[in-house]
Amino acid sequence: MSIEETEQEIVEEFELFDDWMGRYEHLIDLGKSLPLIDEKNKTNDKLIKGCQAQVWLHSDFKNGKIIYTADSDAIITKGMVALMIRVLTNHTPDEIINSKLDFVEKIGLIKHLSPTRSNGLVSMIKQMKLDAIAYKVKS
């Protein structure tokens, strides 16, 4: 599935909920179901520092594709992290670098992408793309 197709799938998934509470509950469930990051990768150098929620991001490069794993200490942020990974993981550096990720706006959680200092999500997307650039240069 392409990045855009996964994004569209998520948008449709969130359209099933008609109020914010349902959307947030779904996001929280996604956060809870995020596969655990290998503890050895939950180190300070993998920490993306937001003002409040901490996000750990790790990436591996296999067969020309990037595999991301991540965790956060805040469950709503973790839900967003789970969505980002679902969209971007197992894609090539070029696909990741060129992704627009406008699904966040469409699912009505736009505030989480605003450049505030309240969460590490913007920094996380930036780091995911930086990792992709690094793998592209290396490969």
Binding site: Q52, A74, I76
Partner: peptide, 21 residues
């Protein structure tokens, strides 16, 4: 067991402005 950020985010949805962090 709960992160202040999560609590603040849900309260905000309810129109309640608190500070977290």
């Amino acid at each position: 067991g709960l992160h202040p950020f999560d609590i603040g985010t849900i309260l905000d949805q309810l129109g309640i402005a608190v500070r977290t962090g």
